[in-house]
Design a protein around this nucleic acid. Sequence first.
DNA 1: GTCTATATCGGGATAGAC
DNA 2: GTCTATCCCGATATAGAC
Lengths: 219, 219
Amino acid sequence: MGDTGNTSSTRNTAPASPSAPASTQERLVTSTQELLWERGYVGTSPKAILERAGVGQGSMYHHFTGKSDLALAAIRRTADGMQQAAEECFTAPGTAYDRVASYLLRERQVLRGCPIGRMTQDRDVVRSPELRQPLDEMFGWLRHRIAEVLAEGQRRGELAAGLDPVATAAAVAAVVQGGYVLARAAEDTAPFDAAVRGVLALLAAQAVIPATAPSSDTA
Amino acid sequence: MGDTGNTSSTRNTAPASPSAPASTQERLVTSTQELLWERGYVGTSPKAILERAGVGQGSMYHHFTGKSDLALAAIRRTADGMQQAAEECFTAPGTAYDRVASYLLRERQVLRGCPIGRMTQDRDVVRSPELRQPLDEMFGWLRHRIAEVLAEGQRRGELAAGLDPVATAAAVAAVVQGGYVLARAAEDTAPFDAAVRGVLALLAAQAVIPATAPSSDTA
DNA sequence: GTCTATATCGGGATAGAC
DNA sequence: GTCTATCCCGATATAGAC
């Protein structure tokens, strides 16, 4: 129960040389990331992890205290990767709308779902403060970052001043997560794409018209 | 494997007299509905269902061919209930915006998540055509119904003609499902509420101004 | 119809050899 | 560090008594 003794906590960086032959520990984490994505936490057994990683039981219990400890390492790794990928969209050049659009339209494996969002539906994950924390941080950061981009767009006069950056950011993040749900229910990416088009169109309507006459402030 | 022999298929109505002491079969379905919501499909064992329903193993395998067959009955029942609840919002009086808002703002047990949306994250459910069908129908109907309401709003001149009803409907449905995800990650309903406020504000901006001068058509 | 055995399998973890 | 052997329990289903 009280496991998850990850002392090397917080650190969840991938190995320095990504090309080097993966260590046993690395292979365990990678395999766990894949299986958590495919089957969720309850659906993922240590046995399946070991088989995919190609190692024996002993190795796993040597490097990790148990299933939840290994899952913690895997979830952190995945969350970090997602955050980096998202940040690339938000720092891209262009208007606030462009950058949000870049995030929404970025390539995704829609039918596989969101590897982090999925964890949210897993009872054992949400009930464990340690396992939930990376999800909380990731989505908290995401909403905050989108809100920042939107607020910046307002300051630049690109977006209507009346827009609520925080609420809009939550809506944008929710559309992506909900899009996954709708797509998986239909076994078709179309609902995801439609949802993204939907918010983007609504957001585009908030773009300020190129300012017909700001001529007065120069006079 | 090839079970789910629900011959009384399609029918998933609750018993005629909801007040009468629930039959064994009814208690099994109800217990399964609850457990699927709480723990998902993989996380729900027949044993747990039997304990909650207060019946023995024999009863379950007498009325149903197995776990998946019972789950099918439960999922259908839940999906039907959700559809009915949603329809009440859409048939309510008021503008298209009002009716969509009524759906979005309707009371929910946000932190428990969506009982149908959750199934979407469950491998065994999505991989089974029978089990996935109710989800597909439910969300398909939902998107279609929201699109209808929006299109009607356009015809009535309440909403901007440029609005894409189908894409907007997908976005609205996605915001709800994604809101659940964000809320559960944060263990806080705030992100859900923010997301709903967000889309509603964006949608409100699509409302046509009360028409300053429709005076010409009477002349 | 409903119950209580019973059977088989896999999940999750430990022990101890190499 | 890594492996295999072993342990205990719960998941899922069947058999057959009442």
